[in-house]
Design a protein around this nucleic acid. Structure first.
Lengths: 357, 357
DNA sequence: ATGAAAGCGCTAACAC
DNA sequence: GTGTTAGCGCTTTCAT
């Protein structure tokens, strides 16, 4: 591949390899004659010299490579944004990402960490494909590590997760701010952190507006389009049908759109909908576009790498830190004020609960 | 990270590092006493010895790392399958993938290739995010390379692309086999290879069944859900409305579903639909599930790595090869025989054209 | 069957 | 300012 070494550059420019190393690395405190410097630089250019980072890493004990291990990048499309964010931050620091995914197999996971460690990666990001509490593989702790979209039970390793509560609250507040007072929630029936957290956000939003929480407004379904359809249908065929629906995920919102269509309800005319995830393939393709909450995958990816690099560069062990990154609301066309002209089963007077702070 | 070296293992087992290297690598032709061997292995285990692959690579001139450069992994969700496929094949050969993406910026691309080369990757896969003809960056040719989901104009570098024609033909034949004879095609208006290739597949399928191709059956739209809606609506409101529609992509099919819904046509009762891409988020979420054609991303990823490894391991340069991988039909619920009970504008007698071979 | 020694390409003391 | 030298941890002749 690259047959030209520092030695070649040294010979051709009539200096020692040390000097070449000095100019090429701009070694601080090592002053070198501008003329020599110029010459070396020119020769390196001419020869298309490409420093061997393997040799460099061997010598400096720093590979400038970071392992990115995930349980299943493949499954969720927007998870790739975590990788892109990680790459972004890594590139800034001159590091490359070595990608590996285990498909969730713990044995494989351990072997993969071993492979990464053998390659002398400077640290490892362990990414999960949805926000969860997970005990990382034991050998992960053999070096700097950060958990991405997950939190370890003991909190011993740094981690970053999305602010599910804040995101859900923002979603529901968008509905409330538009004037909706009868709001349904098509939630998931999975046993994952987001289930409780997003429900908390839902309740907090109601509270801000001084509204009472009614468990009957929450309907838990399978986390897919079919579940959304079922949930939407259940909510929309009630006597006191909601004028706004918050969905646990965009996929569920897709089902709600269909249910609304079948019932002759137009969005956002008769019904406002807010999703969660911002799966652009869906949120941007539905008609009207789905107002939803974006998971900060890119930022989490960046945060993980930056934090990892901090650990790597710190002279001595730093305590673990845990970040909760904001989930921004993405406004599209699915929210509008509730219609007075075509009243729902229950007339929605804007009553009680004033404006929030 | 790993402070124990081959030297430590040697000392602890009372042999030279040479012997340790021999047993650990199972060097062929080098016979070593079973007892010594056993001891070395045990000690290595005890010490948690982890060979330094940087040092190894420096010595052997083989890093067992492969660069995976893509223009934008992020954009298309299923492109991650290419990465997973690549990883799969790389893992088999004991190689790791170093991931990089350029966002399509040619300058950055060149610098990234340089970074990969400095890391002494054994070869580079250059992946594009949709099937296209692309001139790879000049410095890519500094080592073994393979194009993924792209073809170079000069054909000098090996490449792999999906069989668009065959996929489209299979899609349309599914419609034909179900008995449809009036088939519309909601195509893309982008200027990309797939446009012509899928149209060719469409025509070939008709030909197999002895049907005449009518350009009016093809309507080109923007490659998104809205375009699909427009195209579907245009097709379905014609006097001789088709009973089956082939869509350039699943996103377009999503729009067709909506158009059909609005017109009171049920799928697959009144209308059969076939998509292309198998974007599972969509194809699996629509109701009924969308019968569609899958792009062989996983297999293409595998193929790219296997071919690259072939190049790397070959004692002398091998000629470039170009692969076209099959796109399998994925059957879900959107195709059924045309209904006689609820005739379309034109009655669809199964006339002319017999069964295909 | 085992070991000594050279060297992969580089950086970093330490001279001069 | 510039050069000498000693490794980083490993594989690989070549001896023994």
């Amino acid at each position: 591949m690259s047959r030209v070494t520092i030695k070649d550059v040294a010979e051709r420019s009539g200096v020692s390899i040390t000097t070449v190393s000095h100019v090429l690395n701009d070694v601080p405190g090592k002053r070198v004659n501008p003329q020599t410097r110029e010459r070396v630089l020119r020769v390196a250019e001419e020869l298309l010299y490409r420093p061997n980072q393997l040799a460099r890493g061997l010598r400096t004990q720093r590979s400038n490579m970071i392992g990115f291990l995930s349980d299943r990048v493949s499954t969720t499309p927007h998870a790739t944004k975590m990788i892109v964010g990680a790459q972004d931050a890594a590139a800034e620091a001159g590091s490359l990402l070595v990608l590996l995914n285990s498909g969730g197999d713990p044995d494989l996971e351990e072997r993969e960490i071993e492979a990464l460690l053998e390659r002398q990666v400077d640290g490892i990001v362990y990414a999960l494909f949805y926000h969860q509490v997970a005990t990382p593989p034991a050998n992960l702790a053999n070096g700097p590590a950060v958990l991405l979209d997950a939190r370890s039970p003991d909190g011993l390793v740094s981690s970053v997760v999305p602010d599910e509560i804040g995101g859900a609250r923002a979603a529901v507040e968008a509905l409330l701010a538009a004037g909706h007072r009868q709001i349904g929630y098509v939630a998931t029936n999975e046993d994952i952190p987001a289930r409780m957290l997003r429900l908390t956000g839902f309740r907090q939003a109601l509270e801000v507006y001084g509204l009472e929480f009614d468990p009957a407004d929450v309907i838990e379904v399978n986390p897919n389009a079919r579940g959304g359809y079922d949930g939407g249908r259940a909510l929309l065929t009630r006597s006191n049908r909601p004028t706004g629906i918050f969905c646990f995920k965009d996929l569920a919102a897709m089902g709600v759109y269909q249910a609304a269509g079948e019932l002759g309800l137009s969005i956002p005319g008769d019904l406002s909908v807010v999703g969660f995830d911002d799966q652009e393939l869906i949120s941007d393709s539905l008609w009207p576009g789905l107002t939803t909450v974006a998971l900060p995958h890119f930022e989490m990816g960046r945060w993980a790498i930056r934090t990892l690099l901090g650990q790597i560069e710190a002279p001595e062990p730093v305590p673990a830190v845990h970040a909760v990154l904001p989930c921004p609301l993405v406004r599209r066309g699915s929210v509008a004020p509730p219609s007075r002209l075509r009243p729902a089963g229950t007339v929605c007077l804007v009553e009680g609960g004033g404006r929030p702070p």
